[in-house]
Design a protein around this nucleic acid. Structure first.
Lengths: 108, 108
DNA sequence: TAGTGGTACTCGGTAGTACAAAGTACCAAA
DNA sequence: TTTGGTACTTTGTACTACCGAGTACCACTA
């Protein structure tokens, strides 16, 4: 699938939140997860900028831990604000997809 | 529904293409249509910038016609390139929504 | 022991998009 | 004559994903 970047704007951050919400994890693994989900062109730089933004906005908590196979990993988990943000993300997603699908069906 | 702007990036252009594709129409009416579809905060400025972009990229054809109740209207219709772009838009949309819904279901 | 490749994070700059804001202009009705 | 609805344009801004380059740790191997 060719260039999806514009369409991913605003949704990729939510995807990262969802991944973190389901399991405490770190940037490199999140990138791999997104790639295997089908977002093949998402690169590390993108994920890290999202993670730094989430941290700056106080939606996640970060802990650095040694890795055993490379440099130390920075593990992220959602805090209360992050869980709320995730919920509103899914609400928005639901809202938009229903409207657009309605439009697609020639709907009113 | 509060601020959807970031999530609409990349999709709004496709919505406009779809609207034009189903009926030759003009900017002001497209804005109203989007608003009644549920995209309440989309304003005229946004739609006009999209229309100018579509025109610049050679995806639509524009014709100015007198209105009878205001200044002349600029009617848009899709050309062949526009119809192709619309098709790839829906393909991308399908692709992304299935992946994200899969992620949402905790899926893999 | 030097080199290679996989793991892991950071940072500065760029392009694209929706939006805000202000302006222009036409017309009908109060 | 002023208001309000219709209709388009233009300039500037904020936000986001991406690119590219850099740093650094570790295991394996020739």
């Amino acid at each position: 699938m060719d260039d999806l970047t514009e369409m991913l704007k605003g949704t990729l951050e939510g995807c990262v939140l969802e991944i973190i919400g389901s399991e405490e994890t770190y940037g490199y693994a999140i990138t791999r997860r997104l790639n295997e989900l089908g977002f093949a062109d998402v690169v590390e730089g993108t994920v890290y900028t999202i993670l730094l933004r989430l941290e700056k906005n106080g939606l996640v908590q970060a802990t650095k831990r040694p890795s055993g196979q490379g440099p130390p990993r920075k593990f992220y988990s959602l805090n209360e604000a992050g869980r709320e943000e995730l919920a509103t993300f899914w609400a928005k997603w639901e809202y938009i997809t229903t409207r657009i699908d309605r439009l697609k069906e020639g709907g009113r």
